[in-house]
């Protein structure tokens, strides 16, 4: 594909993200019209209740979904590249295990009931532990990709067993809320964290996008990659920690949203090719498009019952990917 084509696809995706954003704003049970929703957002003359609904409830939620989607898709893309493994995702390296353990501990110990702030806090703390363990284990093997994946998988198992143990030992009602959190949803995140995420995640995404050329040479792997004057090991460390941080920041807020980080990079790779310079921003756009869409569907499909957005992402994304696989390859 030529540069012009890529630019076209980028613009198309940017427009799609915007359209999905407005669409998600307007859709809801309370019958706010699309025009009113747009007016409310940009300060037009509409009913005050509508303004509150749009600006204070829906806007943060959709905005968060965009950022989380972009963050997860980009970190998935980076993990797949540095681990040289297409099955890697933001959670391969045990990050979700740590998050789950932290959050479940917060729910079960009752900390979550005291202050909802404890949920993201504990989840983030849990992830720092799991990422550090994986980092230290990988360091002994000089960040060899197989060693990294293996230590990630092992850490995941240990942490998820610990979660199961906690579930088994605790009363049912707290298990239910903790379980819903684990599957990921945007209905109850702490809005005070929004500015933090808005600052941190896009900065990391920009850094990772700019590192596309370096990620390319890291994903090339082997001895050859070490002869281009680049410290491969140091770059793997940097990329691993940055991508983990993005994952940790997003997941600690909205739970373990599966699928986005695994499949969005695959789908974009099918469309845009393997060059990470192009692939990483494309994945960011696609994630920012896909997750708000799924979130809106999760609000609407079985309303008033809220279903975890992770369920929707997996079903829709999975079906879409199957369609993409069935289509013959263009040459």
């Amino acid at each position: 594909m030529s540069n012009k084509k890529f630019l076209f696809v980028y613009i198309l995706m940017l427009v799609s993200v915007f359209v999905v954003f407005l669409f998600s704003l307007a859709i809801g049970l309370d019958g706010i019209s699309f025009v009113d929703a747009v007016k409310a957002l940009f300060g037009g003359a509409v009913d005050e209740n509508v303004v509150v609904m749009i600006k204070q409830i829906r806007f943060p939620r959709i905005f968060m979904a965009c950022i989380v989607g972009a963050g997860l898709a980009v970190s998935g893309c980076v993990f797949q590249a540095i681990l040289k493994n297409p099955l890697a995702d933001p959670f391969t390296l045990g990050i979700s295990g740590g998050a789950s353990l932290g959050a479940v501990a917060a729910f079960i110990s009752g900390l979550a009931a005291i202050r909802s702030f404890f949920i993201p806090f504990c989840a983030f703390a849990g992830m720092i532990v799991s990422v550090s363990v994986v980092y230290l284990l990988s360091m002994r093997k000089r960040f060899n990709s197989n060693a990294m994946i293996l230590s990630g998988v092992v850490v995941s198992y240990i942490f998820s067993s610990a979660v199961m143990l906690m579930f088994a030992l605790s009363p049912e009602n707290s298990v239910q809320t903790a379980f819903l959190w684990l599957m990921g949803n945007f209905s109850s995140f702490d809005e005070r964290l929004l500015p933090f995420i808005t600052a941190v995640v896009p900065i990391c995404i920009i850094i990772l996008s700019l590192s596309g050329n370096i990620i390319n040479v890291v994903s090339l792997g082997g001895e050859k990659s070490k002869t281009f004057g680049i410290n491969i090991e140091r770059n793997i460390k940097f990329l691993f920690l940055t991508a983990s941080f993005v994952t940790a920041a997003t997941v600690s807020i909205c739970g373990v949203v599966g699928f986005v980080g695994l499949m969005i990079p695959h789908i974009m790779r099918k469309i845009m090719g393997t060059n990470n310079v192009i692939l990483i921003p494309a994945s960011a756009f696609a994630g920012a498009f896909f997750l708000p869409l799924c979130d809106t569907l999760s609000r609407m499909l079985f309303s008033p019952v809220l279903i975890p957005v992770g369920v929707i992402t997996s079903i829709i994304g999975g079906l879409f990917f199957i369609c993409l696989l069935l289509k013959p390859d263009r040459k």
Partner: peptide
Amino acid sequence: RKEFAKTVSFLPQCIDTSLS
């Protein structure tokens, strides 16, 4: 590393190019 990469280049026996 950079200086050395400008002095000596290396072509290994085989190269894994699973990436397109």
